[in-house]
Design a protein around this nucleic acid. Sequence first.
DNA 1: GGTATCTCGATAAAGTCAATCGAGTTACTC
DNA 2: GAGTAACTCGATTGACTTTATCGAGATACC
Lengths: 149, 149
Amino acid sequence: MRISTKGDYAARALQELSMHYDRGPLQIDAIAERQEIPVRYLEQLLLILKRAGYLESKRGVKGGYSLAKPPHQITLGEIIRLMEGTQAPIFCVDPSSREKCPAEKRCGFQGVLVEVRDAVAHILDSVTFEEICRRARLKIAPRSTSYHI
Amino acid sequence: MRISTKGDYAARALQELSMHYDRGPLQIDAIAERQEIPVRYLEQLLLILKRAGYLESKRGVKGGYSLAKPPHQITLGEIIRLMEGTQAPIFCVDPSSREKCPAEKRCGFQGVLVEVRDAVAHILDSVTFEEICRRARLKIAPRSTSYHI
DNA sequence: GGTATCTCGATAAAGTCAATCGAGTTACTC
DNA sequence: GAGTAACTCGATTGACTTTATCGAGATACC
């Protein structure tokens, strides 16, 4: 699995939105500025997230984006899969691909690659954005033990 | 981590050479044919493997490539790293990269990505080409319990 | 001397990634 | 109801990477 800027930016945007959850919409410009993402590119990514049901948007003055569900119901794994297309390290162990490996019958490492894929998926699917927020807050204010959303 | 044809082809070539270990050199054409790899492309990959010390070559009639060390001393992990450049899912957790993440101070998922990187490395580094041969042979002749190199 | 084979660097075709742009549409505010 | 702030959407572009392909050469064996 490789994470390109697409998945990276999307995850970072969702982190910002999670940290702002229940406090009204956040504007594209604000997210882009805080995470140093090109605005016009972020625009596209937020649209993808919206169409997939993760975000709600509001137009006009005081508009912006907000989460369509609480941070603890969104995992990093689903976002990466949505943005990157797959998590498989190689096409022959990609469940969403129907392309078949020509050497499958004499391939000794396909099994290993399946293990890799599953290990990665297990880690990413077990982390929600609530957890990501918690970790981000620990970095920003390491001494704080309180927990605000 | 993503495995492109480069790492894929290299690993498959090494598998062929491992299965032929101690039985003299194998020619590029033979390897290419068995694994359905473009000959002129495989040529380049074998050169990389040779320069890195994994292969020996012999020119002229009955020449070809052979392993420079026994299959159990080569891991899939080192080959993937050699061919793909890195195993890190993203630049900010790539130990060989000096590029720094601009958002590190407020990033909640860098830790998760480190976990992913280490999990992948652990799996790939624990598999040698001896093991890969064993698995390939099981596929080719599932009933055989004998073990030949 | 001739043939089989590896060696090496240059080049090219194709695809992907990461934006950038322009022209909308919607909704709020005054 | 005019104006402005904000999201929407599709097209395009430039750079880069991947995946080869090619031609000419060097080496070893018979």
